[in-house]
């Protein structure tokens, strides 16, 4: 009841805030592109080293680290002015808060990726993969959803602890490894060989399953993560 309107209100509030200050997006985009340049220097052993088999790894490591930056910001502002209390005082289901925060983080990640992926393709991918765009986007969305839902749950916890942004990577990185494995493999196969839906189906199903499991897990535990 009214959950959808509240969901929209929270997402809109976060978007307005971010598009006005741009402090998170600008940093994340700069970080992502810088990371690619760093990867280029780090992995190029000799003139014209073939980095094709590293592409999936580079891309997802970059996104996951960029998201860590964003997740810390996403709750810092709620915490700083005690806005979280204001939010919790509202007659809103806690799961709605979780879903809205996840959706907001997903939008930010997609914005970053919209900038980063073309630059990445320009830097590292020689063959045109426009024909494989659809499977790539499916993998991207499925992996993003897992990263954002799990990240939002853990950021909610870490913001209430003493070490805040120091804690989040330690909690988040070991848990996100399955997504990293599946998404990296799928992305590399797409970039390197143009593998289509057929042989990626297992990985996509796996990512879908991961998303489902952690949405349910967050559903069941978010009340505890955000309350008290």
């Amino acid at each position: 009841m009214g959950g959808w309107a509240q969901f929209k209100a929270i997402v809109r509030k976060d978007l307005i805030r971010e598009l006005r200050t741009r402090d998170m997006l600008v940093s994340m985009i700069l970080f992502v592109i810088l990371a690619m340049i760093i990867f280029h220097y780090a992995f190029t052993v000799e003139e014209g080293s073939d980095l094709t088999w590293f592409t999936g790894g580079m891309l997802w490591v970059t996104f996951i680290f960029a998201m860590l930056l964003g997740l810390n910001r996403s709750f810092a502002q709620e915490k700083d002015e005690r806005c979280l209390d204001g939010l919790l005082l509202c007659p809103v289901d806690r799961v709605t808060i979780f879903l809205a925060k996840t959706a907001g983080n997903l939008v930010f990640l997609l914005i970053i990726q919209a900038v980063a992926v073309p630059v990445f393709a320009l830097f590292f991918i020689e063959r045109s993969f426009l024909g494989d765009l659809l499977p790539f986007l499916v993998v991207l969305l499925l992996a993003d959803l897992g990263i954002c839902s799990l990240g939002t749950l853990l950021a909610t916890i870490s913001m209430n602890t003493r070490s805040r942004d120091l804690l989040l990577p330690i909690l988040f990185l070991p848990l996100i490894v399955p997504v990293l494995i599946a998404a990296t493999g799928a992305t590399t196969l797409i970039f390197a060989e143009g593998t289509g839906f057929g042989s990626l189906a297992m990985r996509m199903l796996f990512l879908l399953g991961f998303d489902a499991v952690f949405l349910v897990a967050a559903w069941g535990t978010y009340d505890f993560a955000i309350g008290e």
Binding site: T161, L175, A182, F224
Partner: peptide, 27 residues
Amino acid sequence: RRATYAAVFAVVAFVDVPITFFATRFL
């Protein structure tokens, strides 16, 4: 609060371990 957060994390972690094991099959 410590107990609550630890419990939430223990739930998520235990769910994650078999998923990780399954994911390693992609390697």
